[in-house]
Design a protein around this nucleic acid. Structure first.
Length: 660
DNA sequence: AGCACGCCGACT
DNA sequence: GTCGGCGTGCTC
């Protein structure tokens, strides 16, 4: 028998090899070891042939070995679809999986999950939970594609629903994929599952997994074992023969999109995978994404609501204005309302979370006098403050290439522009401020700097859980899914911050984040309070009460419709990369002109913008340029992208179809 | 992607 | 005369 393979390392053309009679069974997608000159290389089988075509005149060599691969009949179709959507080579998936199992550079000791004895207390399900579980069961048992949106307010017990379904799937000897938007959440959830479902195998598959754990995952896949696989991006890319259910938890989070190219969105491809495999998929959140709510409605997804909190009541929301009574307090960033509440907390020995999101690299402007923020007239997004090395200041829109000079005075209250606020405050400074106000309090910090060091993070979480820390100051990393029963006060330092991000979905992200962080308060018996500090009266703040989240959705979706934003149109981004800025600049323009012409000729009506030099335009010597595409359907943009493939350019070219 | 091959300049 | 830097081309 003869085969054609693609090398996992090396050049792109298929190569022929022969296979000896009686060797291990081979099929398309099998990984084999092949001889290449005087070395050997892994390769993936792309075609099987009984005879050699006459055109082959050279001597075909024989393969060296066949590597065992999980026997997943739907895998080929799935990765082909993903590859074509992101404009990448399907071999990428084999490379990625293989390199992940090969490299054993794991930092620190492997995660040890203590198997504990099951509490065996029968769980009393609420009526809402029962409805959701009963609604999903048919798709599980009969095996058909069923997307489900599970909208459960914070603390409503979504996990209980998941657990019931997981047990059902595992009892049928199948695999459950459980996706979360962050590694730290995966570790936490893994230990929770291992504790509560001690009879089942729970495996993590992320950058935090040890080599032995990865090997165990692979071995289990080969054997077709039944287990729960927890991760962010990688699990969805694995071949799994007996996939039974996919759960995407905290589905509103942006963490499912990969940060490196190709920027695959795991939530999105999870939906495709479920369809390909005829299984149900559950997207769960207390603040579902606008896109998912819209899809649930228009595509007939099952939609379940958990409106009641499992324990505890919804927290009381207090809005405090940062610009009022400034002279009456010690520090601008801590209002009297917040200061007094924190003081009470310290006396009551209850814990406080202080939320301050200093995400983003560029600053927006806000008038100190009236709270006005300059925004783009055409896009209803705030303008990004830009300062060149020469000292030249200007305001730019990230979406439509609109720009303007820095105004001399505030157009609302005519205050001189020097009173525009450009700089924010970070978590580190916040800790200092609080320490000064409350010298006796033990204050912890949790942000990207801390979570990057897994040991520190783990320690911080343990300390906070046992009550050794009074106040925890953090960025969005504390908003995600944690359950701290003794937290009864949440303070949001600067709620307007995330409302003014220069993206079309800034409002969605902002309200989700605020509701999520507010949801950390009063999750047990004790009632919770949330103090939200603001600069201006943003219309978004009327939705701070999470029971009104669907009202927010209805308003937002109308706005998106009026402005022609997703989900009514699709946004895509072409990213060109090259070390030489001159070549890059020239090629980016060339590509743009080519696309522009083709778009006109074929009447695709894709809106093209660019090429734009992004704000962060150079990362480790690599320069970047962006071309934005706005279209009614992805397909139209793909026609343009595929036409580019024949064009010979030196720059690297990536397609990012932005979701939501 | 690797690796061999070969051309050419620098250094013992 | 030999070493090695790197440009080029080939791999079933």
């Amino acid at each position: 028998m003869y085969i054609q393979v693609r090398l996992l390392k090396g050049w792109k053309a298929p190569i022929w090899y022969s296979v000896l009679e009686g060797s291990d069974p081979l099929e398309i997608g099998s990984i084999v070891e092949v001889p290449l000159q005087n070395r050997k290389s892994p390769a993936v089988v792309i075609a099987l042939h009984q005879i050699l075509p006459l055109s082959i005149t050279f001597i075909v060599r024989s393969i060296l070995a066949v590597h065992a691969t999980p026997n997943d009949e739907h895998y080929q179709g799935f990765i082909k679809k993903v590859a074509s959507f992101y404009g990448i080579d399907p071999v990428y998936f084999y490379k990625r999986i293989r390199s992940f199992f090969k490299i054993g550079r794991t930092v620190g000791p492997p995660l040890v999950i203590e198997k504990q004895i099951s509490s065996s207390i029968p769980i009393l399900l609420t009526d809402e939970q029962k409805v959701a579980i009963d609604g999903i069961f048919p798709a599980l048992t009969n095996g058909f594609f069923e997307p489900v949106l599970l909208y459960g307010v914070t603390g409503s017990g979504k996990t209980v629903v998941y657990k019931e379904l997981i047990c059902k799937v595992l009892k049928e000897q199948k695999v459950v994929l459980y996706l979360l938007p962050e590694v730290s959440l995966c570790l936490q959830f893994q230990s929770l599952l291992a504790r509560e479902l001690p009879d089942f195998l729970v495996l993590g598959f992320s950058s935090a997994s040890s080599l032995s754990e990865k090997k165990q995952v692979w071995q289990s896949l080969l054997e077709g074992k039944s287990f729960i696989l927890v991760g962010v991006h990688l699990p969805i890319l694995l071949p799994i023969s007996n996939l039974g259910l996919i759960i995407v938890d905290e589905e509103h989070e942006g963490g499912f999109q990969e940060k490196k190219h190709p920027k695959i969105n795991s939530k999105e491809i999870a939906l495709w995978r479920a369809k390909e495999y005829n299984i149900p998929i559950i997207l769960g959140s207390a603040t579902p994404s606008v896109q998912s709510l819209y899809r649930a409605k228009t595509l007939g997804w099952k939609f379940f609501e958990l409106k009641k909190r499992f324990a505890g009541a919804f927290p009381q929301i207090i809005v405090a204005h940062l610009r009022e009574n400034k002279s009456k307090r010690k520090n601008f960033w801590v209002t009297k309302e917040l200061e007094e509440r924190i003081r009470e907390q310290l006396i009551k020995k209850e814990q406080t979370i202080i939320f301050l999101n200093r995400r983003g690299y560029s600053f927006f402007l806000q008038c100190k006098g009236c709270g006005f923020t300059p925004s783009c007239g055409q896009c209803s997004v705030s303008l990004t403050y830009h300062k060149e090395l020469s000292g030249n200041e200007e305001l730019r829109c990230h979406y439509c290439a609109f720009w303007r000079e820095m105004p001399l005075v505030c157009p609302e209250c005519f205050l001189s522009a020097e009173h525009f606020l450009k700089k924010g405050i970070g978590t580190q400074q916040m800790v200092l401020i609080l320490q000064e106000l409350f010298p006796t309090a033990v204050i912890g910090r949790m942000d990207a700097d801390i979570t990057a060091q897994k040991k520190l993070l783990k320690q911080m979480l343990i300390e906070f859980e046992k009550g050794a820390i009074d106040i925890l100051v953090g960025t969005q990393s504390i908003t995600k899914g944690y359950h701290f029963p003794n937290v009864t006060l949440v303070g949001v330092i600067w709620a307007d911050l995330q409302c003014n991000l220069p993206v079309f979905n800034a409002h969605e992200g902002a309200i989700q984040q605020l509701i999520q962080v507010a949801g950390r308060a009063g999750r047990a018996e004790k009632p919770g309070v949330v103090v939200v500090q603001t600069m201006g009266d943003h219309p978004l703040f009327k939705y701070l009460d999470e029971t009104k989240y669907l009202d927010f959705y209805h308003e937002e979706i109308e706005m998106r419709k009026l402005s022609n934003y997703p989900p009514f149109t699709r946004f895509l981004q072409l990213e060109l990369m090259h070390e030489d800025s001159e070549i890059l600049e020239q090629e980016a323009q060339e590509v743009f002109d080519y696309l522009f012409e083709l778009n006109e000729k074929q009447k695709l009506e894709v809106m093209l913008l660019g090429p734009v030099k992004p704000i962060v335009y150079k990362i480790s010597k690599m320069e970047m340029r962006h071309i934005f595409l706005k279209t009614t359907s992805f397909e139209k943009a793909f026609i343009l992208f595929f036409a580019l493939q024949t064009k010979k350019i030196k720059s690297k070219l990536f397609l990012v179809p932005t979701q939501s």
